[in-house]
């Protein structure tokens, strides 16, 4: 499944395997370089893809079947809009409580940290369940 590139973005489908996450990030990095996306913005999208896609691969499916995860990235007016859609069990990651980031070292737990990071490095993050899919939309603006 090769990425479908347009002048202003790309769409691709990947399978629910950890190695496929790297393919998304490699495709995005080529796109970011080609379009002169600021390095800091590209890195933050990289963090978001890594955390969100691995979360889907690890937890979204209660069977052993292959599933397609659809990823799109679009250049918008002074920003990037990315969507990630999976047909896994309904799950709104934004409904998770934020971790206690002030807890001392011995009491720190790591659960929920990924979505906390993504929420904070993106400008907008929204979730909806549409046509049997979890759809996450990420917005990152730049000058």
């Amino acid at each position: 499944m090769t990425p479908d590139e347009t002048r202003h973005g790309f769409e691709m489908a990947v399978l629910n395997r950890p190695s496929e996450v790297d393919r998304v990030n490699e495709t995005f990095e080529r796109f970011a370089e080609k379009h002169g996306i600021p390095v800091d913005v590209a890195r933050k999208l990289g963090v978001a893809f890594d955390d969100l896609l691995h979360n889907i691969v690890s937890y979204a499916y209660d069977d052993e079947e292959e599933h397609e995860i659809h990823v799109s990235v679009e250049l918008a007016d002074r920003g990037l809009v990315a969507t990630i859609a999976d047909d896994g069990v309904p799950f709104d990651p934004l409904g998770r409580p934020s971790p206690d980031t002030a807890a001392p070292l011995t009491e720190r737990e790591i659960g929920g940290l990924g979505i906390h990071i993504v929420r904070n490095v993106m400008d907008e993050l929204s979730y909806c369940r549409r046509d049997g899919r979890n759809v996450l939309t990420l917005v990152k603006r730049f000058d």
Binding site: R43, K44, V47, D51, R108, G114, I117
Partner: peptide, 15 residues
């Protein structure tokens, strides 16, 4: 960049 899986490693090593 560092994702949450990297942060988990930092936490474990620090502990």
């Amino acid at each position: 960049y560092i994702a949450s899986s990297g942060m988990r490693v930092l936490l474990k090593v620090a502990q």
